[in-house]
């Protein structure tokens, strides 16, 4: 009878480094340092929120302002565009090709509905920033307490 053979992965040489990394990850997990999500999609997005507005930033370097499209409806935000590849001639050799190229489209749900008419967008140093004011009906209202 053939017994199944089990091959164990070879121990990595950098085992102390790995343990160190794991400990950091565990600390991060329990301390809840950041609402960090691993998504391998272009462009990576961060979102900040306060009582008045939501700020979305995206790392989308190397595009022209006109090449980035962004739309918002209710609480759904879409960012799309296309990042062109560097022109490579017939006799050229690409030794590394790590940067993202091609079309992209990201749709994300915002934590609240926003006023689509008042959204502003800027693009600086490869970072797209969208400032989205919360819709009036979403804003917290102060309740006055009257003396009975």
């Amino acid at each position: 009878m053939l017994l199944p053979t089990i091959t164990l992965p070879k121990p990595s040489l950098n085992i102390l480094g790995d343990i160190h990394k794991l400990r950091n990850e565990m600390n991060r997990l329990f301390e809840g340092e950041l609402p960090f999500v691993y998504r391998n999609e272009f462009p990576p997005i961060n979102m900040k929120a306060d009582e008045d507005s939501i700020t979305v930033t995206a790392e989308v370097s190397g595009l022209n302002e006109q090449e980035i499209k962004s739309s918002v409806k209710g609480d759904i935000l879409n960012i799309s565009g296309k990042r062109m590849m560097e022109a490579i001639g017939e006799n050229d050799v690409a030794h590394r090709n790590e940067r993202f190229t091609g079309e992209f489209s990201r749709t994300i749900k915002l934590p609240a509905k926003v006023n689509a008419d008042a959204v502003s967008a800027t693009y600086k140093n490869g970072i797209l920033t969208l400032t989205l004011p919360r819709a009036e009906e979403e804003k917290a209202k102060k309740i006055e307490i009257k003396v009975a």
Binding site: S61, A94, N125
Partner: peptide, 22 residues
């Protein structure tokens, strides 16, 4: 940073994404 390295007859070109940097 992620890079592209392209070689042509005259030069090497290194293109690096470093968003957010001044």
């Amino acid at each position: 940073p992620a890079v592209d390295i392209i070689e042509d007859n005259n030069c090497f070109k290194i293109i690096a994404d470093i968003p957010g940097t001044d």
